[in-house]
């Protein structure tokens, strides 16, 4: 399992979003790392890549909406990190298309995405959760 309980930040709304995001990324990684030949995997890779790309953007937007709703002071900096990742995903996707489905490129993307995502949740998103809890807006108060 990609998702681990120690990634929980203690804000139910963010935790639910993260678990869904991790499920999408896990589906992508499972296809990427399956034992089938690359040619056999390409249709499934392309499909899960598109699906995951859309979901990453949706997730970032939902997280940013939440940050605005609690007046999170680090919103601009956090949004910049999201924007940089979205740009990277789009850039890789474009190169992948131009390369006519280069496997190495997609394996590199998968590795970076994995490490980036875990650090982002454990380090950057933790700050949002800490702020929400400090302000009594984590959804755990009731």
């Amino acid at each position: 399992m990609l998702w681990k309980d120690n990634y929980k930040l203690g804000v139910p709304l963010i935790d639910a979003q993260h678990q869904e995001l991790f499920r999408r990324v896990q589906s992508f990684l499972q296809v990427l790392r399956s034992k089938d030949s690359w040619d056999e995997k390409i249709p499934m890779i392309n499909e899960t890549l598109e699906f995951m790309k859309r979901y990453v953007v949706e997730h970032f937007q939902a997280e940013e909406d939440y940050q605005r709703s609690i007046n999170y002071p680090g919103y601009e900096a956090h949004k910049q990190i999201h924007d940089d990742m979205v740009n990277y995903v789009q850039e890789v996707s474009k190169k992948y298309e131009q390369s006519q489905n280069d496997e190495q490129l997609m394996q590199q993307f998968g590795g970076r995405l994995l490490a980036w995502l875990i650090n982002h949740v454990c380090a950057e998103d933790q700050r949002i959760a800490d702020y929400a809890k400090e302000k009594g807006m984590s959804g755990n108060e009731g």
Binding site: M1, L2, K4, Q26, L29, Q30, L32, R33, Q104, Q107, Q108, F109, G110, G111, R112, L114, A115, W116, I118, N119
Partner: peptide, 27 residues
Amino acid sequence: MVNIMSGMQFEEVDAFVTSAISEIANI
């Protein structure tokens, strides 16, 4: 490191592993 992060079993260093490790160095 990659096995812990992914919850999957990696047995050799390839482009995926090198990229994940590079990102950790970057972080």
